[in-house]
Amino acid sequence: MQKILVGVKRVVDYNVRVRVKPDGSEIMTDGVKMSVNPFDEIALEEALRIKEKGAAEEVIAVCIGIDAAQQQLRTALAMGADRAILVKEDGPVEPLTAARIFLKLIEKEQPDLVILGKQAIDDDNSQTGQMLAALWDRPQATFASKVELDGGKATVTREVDAGLEIIEVDLPAVITADLRLNEPRYVKLPDIMKAKRKPLDVTSLEELGVAATQGVEPVAFAQPQARARGVMVDDVAGLVQALKDKGLF
């Protein structure tokens, strides 16, 4: 296999408790720590392992986002991606648009495998990989916790509500990474230095010929209502009594 394309989205770090502007118009992101979407680190790690086993030649990291997202792509390059593409877009990019952009890049790069995260932890949509597979008219193996490649096929173990589902897909295909697919490597300092010399191309929606749609438009944001603080009990007897008082036992 020649190439693997990997999605790398810049998102608010998973440790940050996100706040909404008092007028509910948007989320406060000023000065907030931004990171690579955790599922995308896993997707990239998988691609790198495939390459290191000799089953692929090149791993390309793709981000659609603002200029500052070059930072996340540099992280991807430091992890081991061979090159990166930033599709620069300052406005919101919904999954259908992201999928259309990935499709254009696929037409250009002709990868045998595309690995995305199962969901971006900001909008929690979990759509892009499935949409891309549909537009590309290729298989999708979502929520993957194990990927085995064999010639022109991949056998993928999927984490589903009923347990683990195993499917076989012909390549090229889209895989979306779940948490237990692997544990991403840590980036070492020399790798960060090396990553600075790796190619990072910048393109745009216009150049790719994709129009950004917004079929689903966020119009307001709010902090959810907090649960009222409950009672503390001292021992098992207290707990049992509290449960009985609520009519639960």
Partner: peptide
């Protein structure tokens, strides 16, 4: 919004050329 629906519905949406509202 189970693993069944999360897997299927975006594929349907894209084939229809439309966006999806999740969850």
């Amino acid at each position: 919004s189970t693993t069944f629906g999360k897997d299927l519905m975006p594929r349907v949406a894209a084939l229809l050329g439309t966006s999806q509202v999740s969850d």
